[in-house]
Write a protein that binds this DNA or RNA. Structure first.
Lengths: 251, 251
DNA sequence: CAAACACTTCGGCGAAGATCGTAGTGTTTT
DNA sequence: AAAACACTACGATCTTCGCCGAAGTGTTTG
């Protein structure tokens, strides 16, 4: 089931200026008639009628007949959320988008997410552990295999503590990478281990993490991933990323 | 500044099947080349090149030159969020959307939002207070006028308590109505008053509120709004809604 | 019952834009 | 240096779709 064509269908619907004007006018939850919407969107009533029929058929608008006129409103808060998403992207010009990454390049590389690690590094670690069958990741849960238990034992990471009082292992969708990293007791243990062994350290009082030279070496040795941030030398899709992609396909 | 045309521009970009396929393929944070994206979206490389240029110019994609090939990825998490919004609306067929309201009709009418009221009723109350110049509502704050002070005094609502320790009055965007209702000490005082005087009562252990017959009468007398839920008799845009619209225009 | 109103359907016009073939630039490989 | 490769620019074709005039259905008002 490919999602591409489906979202194109909805987006194309919103992609017409007249229809977009109608939806914008309804964003605040108002209930408007076809004629009002025609005027607000700047088209003739006949044209508006066609547009409104399409929007209703697609389930974007809810329709209520009342006498000789028809009242329209957004079909659900989900539609409003979608429109908000479009507004945000539309208002931030092409310029802003870049700064978001530029300034946040360090954050994107490695950071904390509550009590565990996130960012490129964390996703690469999760990919590796899945690829090696040390961990089985599900949609909303995870499981440590026997091999994985041995692996962590060998590292000197104690996973037993606190395993009763909290979720042991679960995926957590990475904010910047949009792919899962490890949370739960396992994720927390990994971060603690990394901090204890000076693989990473907190930067100022931000959530960003600095990967130390020791960390770069040990991350490569332990997980086979490139721990250095993408500076001049190594920029773009690094080894850990392409490997990560293969792992994702297997999940 | 009309937002309609702007969101139409972005939506139209996503509205083409080929481009939508590209964006879908990048949803998981991967970094792909122009050729890969051309193949995935099912068009010739020349066509893909044009699409990718448009998406980059609009700030939806980030581009990285690397040797003789170009790597693309989503420009920011905001873009991913927008696409998610579209996916949700696209996957829930027209059928699902209705159920969301039908089941939640009571919630939509009146409910609690933390310690204050929300829903149609709460928005109508806020509109009325603004319309009467009892309260001045700003983007992110609110202010009680002298007239408003007298009004609440007359009702027997004591607004003085706890006014120091928390935000006194602020707007809170209503989940279902997508227009502000009152939060802060003022909002909390109104809910407490309504509960104390049996205008409304909690339903089971949900957040929904039931408007009692007393409440219907008193809401009409106090705020001039229709407090009864829209059953058979009174369905669709009731008096309180059209009045609310006028108030919004004045804010 | 007739007129006004709100809305829909139909049909032709016209513009926007998606597509790919051909030809070009810049980069890597042999 | 030549060939292969990744991508871009241009131009012609073609489909799609928004648009409004004219005419038609159902509802309310006088």
């Amino acid at each position: 089931m490919d999602t591409g064509p489906k979202i194109a269908q909805v987006a194309a619907l919103v992609g017409d200026p007249a229809r977009a004007n109608m939806l914008s006018a309804l964003m605040d939850g108002r209930t408007l008639t076809a004629t009002e919407l025609a005027y607000l969107s700047g088209v003739a009533p006949q044209t508006a009628s066609g547009h409104l029929a399409k929007l209703s058929d697609a389930g974007l608008l809810a329709l209520e007949r009342r006498g000789r006129r028809r009242y329209f409103r957004l079909a659900s808060p989900l539609v409003a959320r979608m429109l908000e998403g479009l507004m945000v992207v539309a208002q931030e010009g092409p310029a802003r988008q870049r700064n978001l990454w530029r300034g946040g390049e360090t954050l994107r590389h490695a950071r904390t997410c509550y009590d565990h690690m996130a960012g490129r590094i964390a996703v690469a670690i999760a990919d590796r552990l899945v690829q090696q069958s040390f961990i089985l990741l599900d949609e909303d849960g995870g499981q440590l295999t026997d091999a994985g238990q041995s692996f962590f034992d060998g590292l000197g990471v104690d996973l037993c503590l606190a395993s009763k009082r909290r979720v042991f292992c679960r995926p957590c969708l990475d904010w910047s990478e949009r792919r899962p990293h490890l949370a739960g007791a396992v994720g927390a243990a990994i971060l603690r281990h990394a901090l204890d062994h000076a693989w990473v350290e907190h930067i100022r009082d931000s959530r960003a993490l600095l990967v130390t030279p020791v960390g770069v070496r040990e991350l490569a040795a332990t997980f086979g991933i490139e721990g250095a941030p993408p500076t001049d030398a190594c920029k773009g899709p690094v080894a850990s990323l392409s490997r990560g992609r293969a792992a994702v396909n297997s999940v």
